[in-house]
Design a protein around this nucleic acid. Structure first.
Length: 861
RNA sequence: GCCCCCGUGGCGGAAUUGGUAGACGCGCCUGACUCAAAAUCAGGUUCCUCACGGAGUGUUGGUUCGAGUCCGACCGGGGGUACCA
C-alpha cells in the first residue's frame, strides 16, 4: 500500500473556490417552480478585518445554506456591508483618511478574507449601505413614511452622548451609558426627527407569539422592552391654598385599586406645571436644576435619595369629596413615562413609602393579605405590594385587586374623572444624528414654509466629499455650501437638514434590498421581493435582540402601511449564536498579553520573550483591550478554512459561547488530515462510481450500511435543529466506523464506497473544500455543491436486534439482546434467567415486573 | 428588586415522550513504531474498592417500578431590565 499523500489544504481550498466562482455556483435566480430558502447572517460593519465572531456566524449560516441547497431549495445567501457609522469618522480624525476611502478599503480587505472561508455566497448581490444607490431609496421611503404620519420632528428631552457628540435613541442607552462609547449620557432638550415605532407597539407585541422560530429569550426581551401595562389615567382638580382653581392634573397609575390610599401627588421636575411654577420660585428652580444633574447611570439611580419639593398646590381626591392632598415635584418621577405625574400610595409602593416616611405623610393600608385581620394590619414599616383584599376603600372593600381595578375604572369613567388605558414603555425611535458619515435626512428648513421634504427629482441627497474633521461637531453643519439650498416650495433661500440618519435605519431594510440589489427605480422589485422574502433563517448575535431586530420589524410594518409590501414580519426564523471566547493572559506587571506572546508547557505558561511567568485569566469574549484575539486570517493560513469551520461547529452548541483553544484547532486539523487519509486508503479498494448494488451483503457490511444511513438521518435532523455539535459527533462516529471496516469481498467494497459517498456528502456543508475534493476523487464529474443530499433507506434505520436493560428495583443489573419488538412475556422470561439478576434476587420472588418494549425490564421485589 | 436561562468526569459537552448517565471530541495514561522525538496506530480513562460490589448529574425534600429529565425549597453562575408609578 502506498503512503497516502498529505492533504494540501492551501492548494485545494483555493482551487475549489475558483471553480465555484467561475461557475457562479451560488448565484441565486428567482424560479417560481422551486421552493426558495433565504439564509441571511447579520451583515458586518467594515471595521477593517473580520474577527472570529464573523467566522462563527458565517460558518453557521453557510452550513444551513449549503444543506438547504442540497435538499433542493432555491437558496438565496447574500452578503453586504453595514457601511455607515462613527468609526469611519473617528478614523478620519485620527488617521486623516476620508471616511469613504477608509470604509471602501476595509470592505476590500474583508471581502478577500470572507472569500477565503469558502462561503456559498451570491456575491453578485453585494451591497454597501453608504452607496448613494442604496440610500436614495432609504430617503424616499423616509419621505413616504413622513407623508403617512410615521415620521415627525419634536422637541423633547433626549439622550446626548458627549463623546460621539450626537443624540442617541433609547435603545442605544445601556445602563445610562452610550452603547458605543460607554460614556454617561446627558439630558438635552432638542428638536429631533423621530419615527413612530409606538404606532405599532401593540401589533409588534401581539405578533411576537407567532414568531415560532425565534428564540423564546429574544421574544421575551422584546416584550419587556415594549412593556405594555394596563392601568388608568385619573384627573385631579388642583387648587391653591385659598381654594382657587388651578386647573387639572392628569396622572397614570397601574394600581387604581389603591386610590383610597393616596396621600400625595408627585410631578416630574420636567413637568410643564413645575416649569411654570419655577419661573416665580427660585427655590423650585434650584431643585429642578439639581435633579437634572443626577445622572441616569444605574449605580447613581440606585443610591439616589428620593427628594421632593412641596408645590403651592393642593390636589382634590377624585373619589373622596372634600379630601385634598399635597403636591410635590419629586426626583423619582419620570417625564417620559405615563403622564409625568403620579399619585403616591405609600402603603403599597416601595418608592412612595420611602417618600412618605421622609416627609411625614400618612400611610394608610388599603390592601391586606387575604387571611389577615384588616384592623391589625399595618404598613407603617414596609409597603404591602402583593395581591390581597381591598380594605378602607368604600365601595371597593372586600374585592380582590383585579376586581377592584375594573370596578374603580368604571366608576372613574362614569364620573368623568378618569379612564382605563394601556401604557407602553416603548418610546418613539429618535433617528437624527449630528454626524457626517450617515445617510442625509432629505429635508429642507425654510423660514416661510417650515420644514419641507426634498422633492423626488432631487434624490438622492448625497453627502459632500469635501469635508474636514479638524474640529469636533458635525462636518456637514460647517460645510461652506452644502446646506445652502433654496426652498423647493417657495424658492427662497433655505437650509438643508444637516443631521444624518441613525445607522440602524440602514440595517432595517437591507434584507429587502438583497432581493433586487441593482434596481434603480425602487428599493426592490415587488415580484422578486415577494418571491424571496421573508428571510427564512436569520443568524446573528443576541446583542441585537432589541435594537436591530425591533427596528427591522418596525420598518417592515411602515413599508406595509405605505403599500410597498403586504408583509408584517421580516424574519421567519431567527437563531442567535454565542460569542467566541479565549483565555486571557497577563504578565507580572499586569500588562495583557496576546496568545502569540505566550508559551504553554503542560500547566505552566510563560512569556515567550523572557520566560517570565504568566497569569492565565478566565475565558472572555475576544476583545482588543484584553488582547485575547486570534486572527482568522492567520488560522486560515496555518490550518485552512475547513479546519476553522469544523472547529467552530464542533464541541460547543452554537447558541452558547465557544472557547477558542489552540488544542481544539489542531485537533480539528488532525481530523481533516485523518479523513483525507481514510478516504484515500479506502479509495484504493472500492469499485468505480456507478457500480450496481449487490443483491446481498455480509453482516459486517450491513452493519456499516446501517451506520451510514443512520448518520444521514441523524445529521439531517441535527442540522435542521441547529445542533451542529451533535452532527459533528455523529460524523466522527461514522468516520471511526468506516476506518475500522475491513472490506473483504465485493459486496463489502460496494458498501464501503456507499458509506464513503454518504460521509462526503454529509460533511459537505461543514468542510466544503475537503468534501468537494473527495467527491471528485470518488470519481464524480459534477460538483458536490450541485449534488443532492443523500436519502436514507428506511429499512436500514431500524435494528432487528435491540439491547434491553435489566433492572432490579430500578438499578441496572445487566443487558440482554432481544429481537426488536419482542413480546413482553419473552422479554420478561429472558430477563428472569439472567445470572446477574438471580444473584441480586437472592431467592426472593419478584413482586412485579415492568417491561417497556425495546427498552427496559425492571424487576421489583 | 423584577423577568429569564443554566449547574452532568480534568475540560467542551451527549443523553426523543421519565427508561442502560457520561455519546463524540480535547486532555491525560499505557503500549507499538523510532537511536530519540514529533506524527501515526492500538488500548485505557466518572469516583471508591484488589475484587464482589457500591456511590454518582449544585444542595435538599418529594412524586414514580424507575428521575440528569417532573414538582417544592435552597445554593451558585450567567443574561435581560428597572425609580416604568
Amino acid at each position: 500500500m502506498s503512503t497516502p499523500a498529505r492533504y494540501n489544504f492551501h492548494e485545494t481550498e483555493a482551487r475549489w473556490q475558483k471553480v465555484w466562482n467561475e461557475r457562479q455556483t451560488f448565484r441565486a435566480v428567482m424560479d417560481r417552480a422551486r421552493p426558495k430558502y433565504y439564509v441571511l447572517e447579520m451583515f458586518p460593519y467594515p471595521s477593517g478585518r473580520i474577527h472570529m465572531g464573523h467566522v462563527r456566524n458565517y460558518t453557521q449560516g453557510d452550513v444551513i445554506a449549503r444543506y438547504k441547497r442540497a435538499r433542493g431549495f432555491n437558496v438565496l445567501h447574500p452578503m453586504g456591508w453595514d457601511a455607515f457609522g462613527l468609526p469611519a469618522e473617528n478614523a478620519a480624525m485620527e488617521k486623516k483618511v476620508h471616511p469613504k476611502k477608509w470604509t471602501y478599503e476595509n470592505i476590500a480587505t474583508m471581502k478577500v478574507q470572507l472569500k477565503s472561508m469558502g462561503l456559498s455566497l451570491d456575491w453578485s448581490r453585494e451591497i454597501a449601505t453608504c452607496d448613494p444607490s442604496y440610500y436614495r431609496h432609504q430617503q424616499k421611503m423616509f419621505l413616504d413614511f413622513w407623508n403617512a404620519g410615521l415620521a415627525y420632528r419634536k422637541e423633547a428631552w433626549v439622550n446626548w452622548d458627549p463623546v460621539d457628540n450626537t443624540v442617541l435613541a433609547n435603545e442605544q442607552v445601556i445602563e445610562g451609558k452610550g452603547w458605543r462609547t460607554g460614556a454617561p449620557v446627558e439630558r438635552r432638550k432638542l428638536t429631533q426627527w423621530n419615527l413612530k415605532i409606538t404606532h405599532f407597539a401593540d401589533e409588534m407585541l401581539e405578533r411576537l407569539d407567532t414568531l415560532k422560530r425565534w428564540p423564546e429569550k429574544v421574544r421575551l426581551m422584546q416584550a419587556n422592552w415594549i412593556g405594555k401595562s394596563r392601568g388608568a389615567r385619573v384627573f385631579w382638580d388642583l387648587t391653591d391654598a385659598s381654594g382657587a382653581d388651578r386647573g387639572k392634573l392628569e396622572i397614570f397609575t397601574t394600581r387604581p385599586d389603591t386610590l383610597y390610599g393616596a396621600s400625595f401627588a408627585a410631578l416630574s421636575p420636567e413637568h410643564p406645571i413645575v416649569a411654570e411654577l419655577a419661573g416665580s420660585d427660585p427655590g423650585l428652580e434650584r431643585f429642578v436644576a439639581e435633579c437634572r444633574k443626577t445622572g441616569t447611570a444605574a449605580a447613581e439611580v440606585e443610591t439616589a435619595e428620593k427628594v421632593g419639593y412641596k408645590l403651592p398646590l393642593l390636589a382634590r381626591h377624585p373619589l373622596i369629596p372634600g379630601k385634598t392632598m399635597p403636591v410635590y415635584a419629586a426626583n423619582f418621577v419620570l417625564m417620559e413615562y405615563g403622564t409625568g405625574a403620579i399619585f403616591g400610595c405609600p402603603g403599597h409602593d416601595e418608592r412612595d413609602h420611602e417618600f412618605a416616611t421622609k416627609y411625614g405623610l400618612p400611610i394608610l393600608p388599603v390592601v391586606a393579605p387575604a387571611d389577615t385581620d384588616p384592623k391589625a394590619f399595618s404598613v407603617a414599616d414596609a409597603p404591602f405590594v402583593e395581591d390581597g383584599v381591598i380594605i378602607n376603600s368604600d365601595f371597593l372593600n372586600g374585592l380582590g385587586v383585579d376586581d377592584a381595578k375594573a370596578r374603580v375604572i368604571s366608576r372613574l369613567e362614569e364620573m368623568g374623572v378618569g379612564k382605563g388605558t394601556t401604557q407602553y414603555r416603548l418610546r418613539d425611535w429618535l433617528v437624527s444624528r449630528q454626524r457626517y458619515w450617515g445617510c442625509p435626512i432629505p429635508a429642507i428648513h425654510c423660514e416661510g414654509c417650515g420644514i419641507v421634504p426634498v422633492p423626488d427629482k432631487d434624490l438622492p441627497v448625497q453627502l459632500p466629499d469635501d469635508v474636514t474633521f479638524d474640529r469636533p461637531g458635525n462636518p456637514l453643519d460647517r460645510h461652506p455650501t452644502w446646506k445652502h439650498v433654496d426652498c423647493p416650495k417657495c424658492g427662497k433661500p433655505g437650509r438643508r437638514e444637516t443631521d444624518t440618519f441613525d445607522t440602524f435605519i440602514d440595517s432595517s431594510w437591507y434584507f429587502d434590498r438583497f432581493t433586487s440589489p441593482g434596481l434603480e427605480t425602487a428599493p426592490f422589485d415587488r415580484e422578486e421581493n415577494h418571491y424571496w422574502m421573508p428571510v427564512d433563517q436569520y443568524i446573528g448575535g443576541v446583542e441585537h435582540a432589541i435594537l436591530h431586530l425591533l427596528y427591522s420589524r418596525f420598518w417592515t410594518r411602515a413599508m406595509r402601511d405605505v403599500q410597498m409590501t403586504d408583509r408584517d414580519e421580516p424574519f421567519d426564523g431567527l437563531f442567535t449564536q454565542g460569542m467566541v471566547c479565549h483565555e486571557t493572559y497577563r504578565a507580572a506587571d499586569g500588562a495583557w498579553l496576546t496568545p502569540e506572546e505566550i508559551s504553554r508547557d503542560g500547566a505552566t505558561v510563560v512569556r515567550l520573550s523572557d520566560n517570565s511567568p504568566v497569569e492565565v485569566g478566565r475565558s472572555e469574549k475576544m476583545s482588543k483591550s484584553r488582547k485575547n484575539v486570534v486572527d482568522p486570517d492567520q488560522i486560515i493560513r496555518d490550518y485552512g478554512a475547513d479546519t476553522a469551520r469544523w472547529f467552530m461547529l464542533s464541541d460547543s452548541p452554537p447558541e452558547r459561547d465557544l472557547e477558542w483553544t489552540e488544542a481544539g484547532v489542531t485537533g480539528a486539523w488532525r481530523f481533516q488530515q485523518r479523513l483525507f487519509r481514510i478516504a484515500s486508503t479506502a479509495l484504493e479498494k472500492v469499485p468505480p462510481a456507478g457500480t450496481s448494488k449487490p443483491a446481498s451483503f455480509p453482516d459486517a457490511a450491513i452493519a456499516l450500511r446501517r451506520a451510514a444511513h443512520k448518520a444521514i438521518a441523524g445529521v439531517s435532523a441535527d442540522i435542521e435543529a441547529f445542533h451542529f455539535n451533535k452532527a459533528v459527533a455523529r460524523l466522527y462516529e461514522l468516520a471511526n466506523t468506516i476506518d475500522s471496516f475491513k472490506a473483504a469481498d465485493e459486496p463489502a467494497k460496494w458498501a464501503l464506497r456507499e458509506a464513503l459517498e454518504i460521509f462526503v456528502r454529509l460533511i459537505g456543508p461543514m468542510t466544503p473544500h475537503l468534501a468537494e475534493e473527495l467527491w471528485q476523487q470518488l470519481g464524480h464529474k459534477s460538483l458536490l455543491a450541485d449534488s443532492a443530499w443523500p436519502q436514507p433507506e428506511d429499512a436500514l434505520l431500524v435494528d432487528d436486534t435491540v439491547t434491553v436493560a435489566v433492572q432490579l428495583n430500578g438499578k441496572l443489573r445487566g443487558t440482554i439482546a432481544l429481537p426488536k419488538d419482542a413480546p413482553k412475556a419473552a422479554a420478561e422470561a429472558a430477563a428472569l434467567v439472567m445470572p446477574e439478576l438471580l444473584r441480586g434476587l437472592e431467592g426472593r420472588a419478584p413482586k412485579r415486573v415492568i417491561v417497556v418494549p425495546n427498552r427496559i425490564v425492571n424487576v421489583v421485589v
